[in-house]
Design a protein around this nucleic acid. Sequence first.
DNA 1: CCTGTTTAATTGTCGGACAATTGATTGTCC
DNA 2: GGACAATCAATTGTCCGACAATTAAACAGG
Lengths: 218, 218
Amino acid sequence: MVGDRLPSETELAEQFAVSRSTVREALKRLAAQSLIRTRRGATGGAFVNHLSYDAAHAQQITTGVLLLSMNAIGFDVACEARFAMERACAPLACARRSEDHLQAMQAEIARQSDPALSDEAFCASDVAFHRALVDAAGNPVLSWQLSGAIEAMQPLMNMITFTARDRARIVALHSRIAATVRSMEAAACDAALRDLESYTVEVHAAVMARRALTARAT
Amino acid sequence: MVGDRLPSETELAEQFAVSRSTVREALKRLAAQSLIRTRRGATGGAFVNHLSYDAAHAQQITTGVLLLSMNAIGFDVACEARFAMERACAPLACARRSEDHLQAMQAEIARQSDPALSDEAFCASDVAFHRALVDAAGNPVLSWQLSGAIEAMQPLMNMITFTARDRARIVALHSRIAATVRSMEAAACDAALRDLESYTVEVHAAVMARRALTARAT
DNA sequence: CCTGTTTAATTGTCGGACAATTGATTGTCC
DNA sequence: GGACAATCAATTGTCCGACAATTAAACAGG
């Protein structure tokens, strides 16, 4: 059970008739999956860990980033998946959004409107905006899955961020999304997300085309 | 880079001025995340692992199962998240489904129609059916996310499977879903999934009510 | 009753040793 | 020269013993 203490390393070694080193290596594997946490000292030992949303979220992100980077996932495929999932929680968000979530989205939009904002901060704010949107759906499982997916795809998205993105247009789309969530218009929210998706794909295509051109020139 | 070999344990120990035991414990942590794989022998060592969809899928499931079991996720919440994501890929599945996917779905429906099928096998076939549905969307990222979520929620679903589920009704709903995917009617497919979701919630509520009754009786 | 000290239990690290595995090398025979 | 067997060397896997670091509990003193 969560919080239970495992036998000490010495006891485990005796119990399984292996050395303490081997037990330790095994425990490290469990610790790496954050299934246990260890504490030193008199009342120390290995304890069954409570898997928090944060820990699960972090694991989700690392797995996602690796999967995307190691399997030559196309931008279109990743983008499609991301927006498909985000649209999935749009109706829920429209139905259940609280004032907190609306304000969080509005705050990010305000931040993004500042021209002095650095590219990195704009990116982070973008993530925070979409995170607020999925959180508005009020389903922690959905939030966990989606925010992990969104953040995992952030490196891919960054490829295009620093070059060709029109901030004003992004902010306008974000505002449209926030407005539809506020007015609980699920269909309009869906449409706005579709527009944001097509714009993202469009920007990516433009960047790719320009790159191909400069590559040919050299 | 993927496939690259790390320095040998002895070399790493020298490089970081720690003992080989400590290096090994660290490597075990990486191995637990399947970031590396180790091979013994002359040309052995630790190699940067290629994260396959299967490995990522397995990790997704274990994380999901633990998260659900350790955070007292309500059945309704899990169910809502699952069907929200599944509905997200329904339009894509309708647009892109190949004959293979249609046949896979049909095969599972046929299997489920056999009254002699054990409850466990019916469950497995259920998972396979929905897996075929998300695969029909033709987006590997979506498949990875969704099939992981579906399988993670299977233990929760099993709670109700062995008691109150009306197989004929499930099979009828599956048939409806398969038919709408075949005829590429995204809206009808969405509606069929909604019906399946409400039936699932309904069955769960019935089971809970009955349990509360028997608990009061004792 | 409070405070500081000691003590015991436990994990963290180290170094050395040997077994198991496996590819590469070498040697032998045809 | 080629096929096959024996040997070798590098590497991971396991074990053991020792000690340091840490921590909470038990204890002693005022």
